[in-house]
Design a protein around this nucleic acid. Sequence first.
DNA 1: CGTTAGCACTCGGAAGGTGAGAGTGCTAAT
DNA 2: ATTAGCACTCTCACCTTCCGAGTGCTAACG
Lengths: 348, 348
Amino acid sequence: MQDELSERQSTILKLIVQEYIRTGRAIGSKSLLERFRLGVSPATVRNEMGELEDQQFLVHPHTSAGRVPTDRGYRYYVEYLLEDARLPVTEQITIRHQFGQVEMQIETWVRLAATIAADLSGNMALVTPPRGRIERLRHFELISLRDHIVLLIVVTQAGTVREVILPQTEPIAQQDLSGISQRLNPELANLTSPQVLERANGTTGLAAAIMRQVADAIRPGQQEVQSELVSEGLDRVLQQPEMSQSAMAHRLLELLRGGMILSELLPQLEFDDDVQVIIGTENRSRDLQPFGVVVASYGTTQEITGVLGIVGPTRMPYGRSISAVRFLSRLLSELLRDVYHQEADSTA
Amino acid sequence: MQDELSERQSTILKLIVQEYIRTGRAIGSKSLLERFRLGVSPATVRNEMGELEDQQFLVHPHTSAGRVPTDRGYRYYVEYLLEDARLPVTEQITIRHQFGQVEMQIETWVRLAATIAADLSGNMALVTPPRGRIERLRHFELISLRDHIVLLIVVTQAGTVREVILPQTEPIAQQDLSGISQRLNPELANLTSPQVLERANGTTGLAAAIMRQVADAIRPGQQEVQSELVSEGLDRVLQQPEMSQSAMAHRLLELLRGGMILSELLPQLEFDDDVQVIIGTENRSRDLQPFGVVVASYGTTQEITGVLGIVGPTRMPYGRSISAVRFLSRLLSELLRDVYHQEADSTA
DNA sequence: CGTTAGCACTCGGAAGGTGAGAGTGCTAAT
DNA sequence: ATTAGCACTCTCACCTTCCGAGTGCTAACG
């Protein structure tokens, strides 16, 4: 942020942002002083506000209304004015306890994390299940469903399971399938999708066809991510007053339905290990520009990762959201680390 | 319906219901005659309307407003006045074509069916993936994720896959797991959950523990259904004018989030093979009483079934919804029948 | 020079008033 | 049984009015 703000300007900006986030109404000089004793007169506050407006941290919705933060104002707030709050320890304990209570199942954890994030932030939370960045085959299984219908089940190193129905032109017996499976499984174990594909090209017949399907199933598909995306708290975000302009609500639902929120977002994410905040027009995707997003990736290593995020109107509780996302993403990482072993460093 | 309506009363009721569904505004005698030539005067229509109101088919929202159908009115309409329309053949062909285009995957079909149902009805559609009523084990797989963490993957006859993480007190090698799997799989194949449990009780040690977990995984869980439920068209139903009272929208989201819509509904469903319509207060569940539901089950036999439904305000296009649900549920059944073989009739 | 008091001005939104339009029910005539 | 006529009711859209919160400016103050 190029311009330095004076101590007093910072204080005023901070209070305005906080009050506006809390109440949702534009903040005027007088009402600000009614709640906070700043030791100066309304006129002084007005002058400072005018200055902040010149510097694009605030705007007037109408001539005679109070001020509202701009995206730039939020950005400054998040960057410099937010003492990075941890979640209160009691809350941390409660949450840890909740995770201890539920089934030991990744799907369950992911869902619980989403629910808690939505709760803490009062907005919508999105979580993708952890997936291997470069998936390797662990195991596949061929099952004859009917004389010429085969079910292929593929398990990756990360434990992801995918099922595909393979219609065949000719009937195949279960025992033939079992034969193929027993022969190929040791050969293909621990290979990546391109590697499996490569072997398939050195083979012919049914085995080759199956290998190609296996290769295909390992590669994490775009639509996969969409259908696995877990979201909670839609009702909360729809209740935000800014959603009453149904255009906005509609756009959000559209984004969510298409799973587009994350696919719009992901290219923008740097996978460092802290929380990222993207405010309004900072979003590359035009559709996301009325929203604020707080995200972090989580996972065991560089290999197995997922994304946890909170989406709300730009007027959202950044402080709470950031601490929630930070805590939950670390907690998920921790849980996953307990479950997965270190990736075998095999390429050959 | 105890009372018989005269020909003319029927016609008027039908027109009112249709107009009200179309426009969403209360219908008056005059405006009805402006759109439809009935060969009688407004006063006559008024008298008939008064009669219909006495018989509880219609209500006045206000003294000087037109009439609106009651749940009873809708019921009569659905029961007696709706010539059971099929979907137009051209639409049928288009839809079949769409199913032909997509991946051969049950998940995909289910999602597509939901999308199309939402489209056709302009409301929200819900579909559960097909599940075995009495699931039998097909195959399970044990995978060592880490020295003392085991991943259990269970595949049922219906092709459903479930994964469970089993933390162990002591480390187990992959080859031990493979041994157990090879020994138990033939023994347990084709058994139901209680049957597996029974065998577990005749065993001890690790094998017994695993068998118990397998038995547990076969049994379809309540929450399972919830997390697998596919819904489409939420935006459409939220745009309905009756949803602007945010109480109603909120209730719907609540129901949807908890997966409660189906669990509230299922006990009420008779599994015959035609479409069922449940209107407003006919719902047992109080929370569903402001809504109308059109559902049908689908599946291959009595064994493998799912549910497809449309949910909207009581003012919803019953005709179109019924034909959509009927067509799509039959189509899904057809597709499934092609995929699954006949259930083996094994119990011994 | 920064701060403050004072003041004229602006504007949104709530409150209240009005009229048109749609609809009704009743009665009496056909 | 049907209908024309009529008095009556109520909602809704529209307008006006008015209050309050808020502003920007100017001039005075320490």
